[in-house]
């Protein structure tokens, strides 16, 4: 499994990195930590490139590399990665891999497969390109209040998306797992099972009944999921909610929830113009939300 963690400034990236590495370790996944630098105007892109080359030659870290260095040190301090040979970040090299993508070559051996990537450009475009080129299964990114960005991330990135909002490293979390009969929901169940097992988290499985026609089917899915988690030895509860899906899930989610739900099966064009329930939940909840694809 490949996981992409996108980080921004140091101030807001600690929770993203922490939760991202917990997810990554749950799946023993190969992890790419990407810093997406400011978009450069086409007028100045070559000038900026020349200056950055100059900064490399003068051993003045180019923008973003310091953030990656901080991320690397943070992961070491939290023991998310272990080095077999002590190597400082200064010993590492920056490799220009392709247009607007650079990789920090880490010396020494690491217990995890970690890649540190520097990209420049518009964030959705860069993350989309990173996911497409490297087959990432989950993209993890910090929250913030940019609802438009949540929408675009879920809409255009071809992987599951975990938006890390208001996550505290010290808090004990539970998983809130809304289930239904979509493919995305099945994927969310798989991810939640693995993540809960690895991190010993309890799972609150819910289904929301909006109309009577699908009631029986949803109840069966809820029972099946409950059984699956119980068999896997995961502490869980199963609840049937009634009413508007978005409203009920948002009400049910606490500060200590990590919501994991499937992507909407609706047509992308309809979702783009009229939105979707998972995107509305991701935008309205004040806790981390994973939209599985």
């Amino acid at each position: 499994m490949n996981i992409l963690i996108a980080i921004g400034g140091r101030k807001y990236s600690k929770p993203t990195l922490d939760l991202g590495m917990k997810v990554s370790n749950s799946f023993e996944a190969s992890t790419t930590i990407a810093y997406v630098g400011k978009k450069i105007s086409q007028f100045s892109e070559k000038d900026v490139s020349i200056v950055h080359q100059n900064l490399d030659e003068r051993q003045l870290y180019r923008p973003g590399v310091r953030t990656l260095e901080w991320a690397y040190d943070f992961l070491k301090s939290k023991e998310y990665i272990e080095e077999e040979k002590v190597a400082t970040f200064n010993d590492n090299l920056l490799i220009d891999e392709e247009q607007s993508r650079m990789r920090v070559l880490l010396k020494g051996k690491h217990s995890n497969k970690i890649n540190l990537i520097l990209r420049t450009g518009e964030i959705i475009e860069q993350l989309r390109s990173e996911v497409q080129d490297n087959d990432h299964d989950i993209t993890i990114i910090g929250g913030g209040n940019n609802k438009g960005m949540h929408h675009d991330l879920v809409q255009f990135i071809d992987s599951s998306v975990l938006v890390v909002k208001n996550y505290s490293v010290k808090k004990q979390y539970k998983i809130l797992l809304p289930v239904n009969n979509s493919k995305g929901s099945n994927k969310a169940i798989e991810i939640a099972e693995q993540f809960a097992k690895a991190n010993k988290l309890s799972v609150e499985i819910v289904t929301v009944l909006e109309n009577k026609s699908s009631d029986d089917r949803l109840k069966k899915i809820l029972e099946r999921t409950e059984e699956k988690f119980s068999n896997a030895g995961i502490k869980n509860t199963a609840t049937i909610l009634e009413g508007n899906v978005v409203k009920r899930i948002v009400e049910n989610a606490g500060d200590d929830s990590i919501i994991m739900l499937g992507v909407s099966p609706k047509n992308p064009i309809i979702k783009y113009f009229f939105g979707s329930k998972p995107v509305s939940i991701a935008a309205q909840c004040k806790c981390p939300v994973l939209v599985a694809k």
Binding site: K38, S41, F43, V48, T120
Partner: peptide, 16 residues
């Protein structure tokens, strides 16, 4: 604006 000239964009690209 930072898009107005190469100088502005280069200084902006430092992230500082």
């Amino acid at each position: 604006t930072v898009v107005s000239s190469p100088t502005a964009m280069i200084v902006y690209s430092t992230g500082l």
